[in-house]
Amino acid sequence: MNQPSLSSGSRNVQMARSMCWHCQSEVAGEYFCERCVKVQPVSKETDYFTCLGLPRRLTIDPALLEAKYYERSRAFHPDFYLNKTEAEQAISLDNAATLNTAYRTLRDPVQRAEYLLDLEAGSAKTIRTSPPADLFEEILDLQDTLDAYRAGDHSSETGRQLRARLEAERGALERRQAEMEDELQKLFVEWDALQDRGEADDPSRMERDRLLRRIREILSNRTYVKNIVNDLVETIG
C-alpha cells in the first residue's frame, strides 16, 4: 500500500474487479450488480474513503461527506431489505455496519488523519508514541505541582500559589494546543496538495514521508497534552 500510484488516484484502487455473488457476472466497484440488481458486499479490502466514494484526502467537506453517507445509507440500510432474501439481508447488515464505522471515522478530522496514517503507514509507522521530548520535563514538574495541590489545603498561602502556577501552566498548554491544531491544518492542506499533484518522483516521496511523520508526531503530542489539560481542568475547574 506504499506505492504513490495507489494513493494518487483512489478511484483506481476500488475498481478491483470481482464477481457478483449471485449471478457470477462481473462487477466493478458498484454496490448493485448490473445484471441481477442484487446488493454486493463491500469488500474487506475497501478503505473507508472508498466506501464513502471520496478521494483519500485529509480535508473533506463535511456537507459532501454527509451527503455521501446518507446516499449510501439509503442503498444499504437493513430497513429496505426486509422483503429480500436472507443472503441479501446479511449483506445489507454488514455493509451498513461498515458504512457507519467509515462515516464515524472520517467525520472526525483527527480520527480521519489517524486512519489515513494507518493506511499510508510505511516509514511513518515507526514513530514513537512516548511523550514529546521538549515537553517531558515540563510535564513531570506539572504532575508534581498537581499532586501537591491536590494533597494540600487549597485556602492556604501555598495552596493559592500552587493554583496560580497551575492556571498559568494551563494557559500555556492551551496555547500550545491551538498551535498544534493550526500546524495540523496546514499539514493537511500540504498533504492534500501533494496527493493532488500525484507525482511519483523521489522528492515527492521524501516530502510525503516528512509530512506523514510530522502529522503523526503532532497527533501523538496532541493526545498527550489533551490528557494533561483534562487533568488540570478537573482539578482547578
Binding site: S73, R74, H77, D79, F80, L82, N83
Partner: peptide, 16 residues
C-alpha cells in the same frame, strides 16, 4: 410509520 418503511410503503424516510 416505521412499519410502513419496513414494508416498502414509505421509501423517502430512513431512521438512523
Amino acid at each position: 410509520v416505521q412499519a410502513d418503511i419496513l414494508s416498502g410503503g414509505t421509501t423517502d424516510m430512513l431512521l438512523l
